[in-house]
Every structure is written in C-alpha cells, then in structure tokens.
Design a protein around this nucleic acid. Structure first.
Length: 262
DNA sequence: CTAGATGTTAAGGT
DNA sequence: CACCTTAACATCTA
C-alpha cells in the first residue's frame, strides 16, 4: 500500500542509509520487475555509480547517481527497501539487489509483482512521458482547483488519478475525504470554491503529517480514519458505524453521518 | 477454497 | 477527443 507518505518514508530511509555509497554490482532476480530497459543494461549502467540522493514524485522514487542514470522505483502495493550487511541470503521476495563497495547492500523487495524498477537519464521527462500530474504535496491551491474542476467523476477517483495529482491512493483518498467531511462518491462537479479550498488545505495537512511519520499508520493521530477501515471500527469523530462503498472499483470507507452525500 | 486487498494500465464505454 | 470506469495482473491473507 505504499502511497505518497510511505514513499516519503522510503526516501528518508534511503538517504540516511545509502547516500554516497558506490555500486559494485547489482542483481535482478525477476526479469518482470525491470521495465523499459533490459536487466543486463540496468546492471551495466548502475555498475560503479555513486548514489547522490533521491527525489520523490507521487508514489515514485527517483534515485540519482553520479554517472548519471537515475534509478526509478515504484513499490506497487507490497514494496519496501532494506539496507544492510551484504552477507547471507537477501530478504524474501527481493527483486533487485544492489551491492555497494562498503560491504552493504540495498534490497528492493516486492511480494507481489506489482511495482517496478527502471532507468532514466531525465526524471522530469520520464514523469512527463508517464503522464504524472504534480506531486500532491507540492501543488498550490490555484493549480489544484484548475486540475480538478470540470471533472465528471467522483471525488475519490479524481484524488486517486495520478495524472491529475500524483501520490494519493485508496487509503489516503479516504482519509482526505473523511477529514474534509466530504462523501467519497460525490461528484467533483458538486464542489464550490469553498469546498475546493477546504479540500486542498485538508489534503496538504493529511499528507504532510503522514509523510513526516513516513507513512507509519500506527503513529497516525487517533482522530484519523486511517487504520480504522474494517467492520468493527466506529467513526473516530461521532462514534457511529463506518460504511464501505465501491467507488470506481475500490473500496471506500467513510462515515455516513460526518460525510453526507449532499 | 474462494474472495478480497493494493496500484497501474490496457481496454472498453460515454 | 477527452475523460471515465472496469478488469486484469500477482500473490498472500482471511
């Protein structure tokens, strides 16, 4: 479930752990995981490169090197990073293993095969080619309204649309709707200027707070919906029962009392 | 054993 | 054409 806040956590982890390490070699254990370039060319082009830092864009992580290809990572639904001593077997479901010249290694792990690694010389162009909208934590109020208004679909599906805004998935779209007190299935058309302003403010706050915690749901404030999705839980605001609805093919959790449809 | 979960994308629909 | 929705993908858990 890595969404923007989780990937922010991966960035922090990677920058703290592996910055300025030089790549001795890399191994790809599953050819399906590397996209757009061959495994061999990925390995060849990473060899000898030094990690110069990383940039997050939506749910994507761009790992810059000095040589200069940038490693592009997506964590799908089950991806994570593990940096550690390079002895013994890598963690289970490691798809890409990067060996550094200091005796440590970075494992890019993904249980299910949704997620990928790629290479680019131009991250900005890469994002453009892949139709990525502006990062949801970066986007200003005016651009936010500009990109959302006129859409025909539901609020939740617009928030999750990566070409409108990059970074929001199922869980955080529910959280943003909950805290903005908007029903996830209302049409974007129904929102007026005030509703957009409130929504933008709420989105920035939710993602900002969550990103600071690196997406750790166990550390989310108790007033949040996060982690309460499911049968047993009640609304943290009014105590009423939560409801689930299918909105554009995903399960939305919400409080029918706090998030009226009209 | 089957259903459901997650994010992206291709395919189908308006 | 622009936009929206659905189904498929892989694989593990309930």
């Amino acid at each position: 479930m890595p969404e923007l806040p989780d990937v922010a956590g991966f960035k922090k982890y990677l920058d703290a752990a592996a910055l300025h390490q030089r790549i001795e070699s890399s191994q790809c254990f599953d050819e399906r995981f590397v996209k757009e370039v061959s495994r061999r060319s990925l390995q060849r082009r990473l060899k000898g490169a030094e990690l110069m830092g990383s940039d997050r864009w939506g749910k994507w992580l761009f790992v810059r090197t000095d040589t200069p290809p940038t490693l592009v990572l997506h964590f799908g639904m089950t991806g994570l990073l593990d940096y550690g001593s390079d002895d013994g077997d890598p963690p289970e479901h490691t798809r890409l293993l990067v060996h550094f010249d200091n005796g440590r290694r970075l494992a890019i792990i993904s249980r299910r095969m949704i997620g990928m690694a790629s290479l680019t010389d131009d991250p900005r162009r890469w994002a453009d080619d892949h139709d990525l909208g502006p990062d949801a934590l970066d986007v200003g109020a005016d651009e936010f309204v500009e990109r959302l208004s006129g859409r025909r679909g539901s609020l939740k599906s617009a928030l999750m649309n990566q070409s409108i805004l990059a970074g929001i998935g199922n869980v955080y779209s529910d959280e943003i709707c909950f805290q903005a007190r908007l029903h996830p299935a209302i049409g974007v058309k129904a929102l007026d200027e005030r509703a957009f302003a409130n929504l933008h403010r709420t989105m920035r706050r939710v993602l900002g707070v969550a990103a600071k915690r690196g997406g750790d749901a166990t550390k989310a404030p108790r007033s949040w919906l996060l982690g309460k999705r499911g049968r047993e839980a009640n609304c943290p605001r009014c105590g009423g029962s939560l409801e689930a609805a299918t909105v554009s093919g995903r399960t939305a959790w919400f409080c029918p009392a706090c998030q009226p449809k009209a």
